[in-house]
Design a protein around this nucleic acid. Sequence first.
DNA 1: CTATATGCAAAATTTTTGCATCGTT
DNA 2: AACGATGCAAAAATTTTGCATATAG
Lengths: 137, 137
Amino acid sequence: MDVQAVEQVLRKQGCALTPQRRAVLRFLDGNLEHPSAGQVFDAVTAALPSTSRPVSSRATIYNTLALLEQIGAVRVLRGTDGEMRYDPNTTPHHHRCCDVCGRLEDVPAEAVTLLLDGRPAVGEVRFTGRCPACTTA
Amino acid sequence: MDVQAVEQVLRKQGCALTPQRRAVLRFLDGNLEHPSAGQVFDAVTAALPSTSRPVSSRATIYNTLALLEQIGAVRVLRGTDGEMRYDPNTTPHHHRCCDVCGRLEDVPAEAVTLLLDGRPAVGEVRFTGRCPACTTA
DNA sequence: CTATATGCAAAATTTTTGCATCGTT
DNA sequence: AACGATGCAAAAATTTTGCATATAG
């Protein structure tokens, strides 16, 4: 996801570049943590100047995330814990989901292609297991 | 999942074999649809004699399903739609999740082992795509 | 200025919890 | 008879929706 490109697409579609949308874009850009909608909301709330009070609302965050999905700026995933997760990395790649804490980690497309004997996988492949943190515990 | 075996385990643990639990077992046995908790509730409600009225409650269904998971009688999955899904097939196998309708289909363990060049996969592997019904539409 | 987005509040879903009552063992 | 399970109702948590107001272009 490239912030510049997304803003251009939004402009072209006649969508307003509100501070809330900008804050969502800034938080998501380069974010590898697959944040949930709640986490996006918290981040936006923290990022926007608290002087101009309302800051944001959950509805706005969901609206914005749905919009970003529509224009292909984010991939929407759902973790084991049932929360929606948002991935700004829209290039082909896969995920591993921790059985214990629900954390989603990236699995490079090439790694799966190797497993598949050279043929790239169609769609997302989701592996389960334990993330490093939960393996130690 | 074998109903006889599960009932024996429950008895051995001092768990009561209530009509509700029996109904859940009967509905799940051999079920390949990966039903949600709500679907299990509906099925149990329909299956139990409506003459003895209370029939069942959602809390009981969740209790029972959690119990069955604890004793390893069912595998708990979560579909794209965020609902919990219950799979009475506890033998090693994988799933394909429909992007459109959320339906979960079985993928034999051997199919994935083949893809992996003879090495069986660890954990569940989840593929995405479209189920036959949603491919036609 | 006009169309659009925002924030609030409330609804809809799914799952969890507390407690009195009922049923299995 | 005793202990555990049930059903109800209400609480949590996440996501969706309706509407008046505020704001970006």
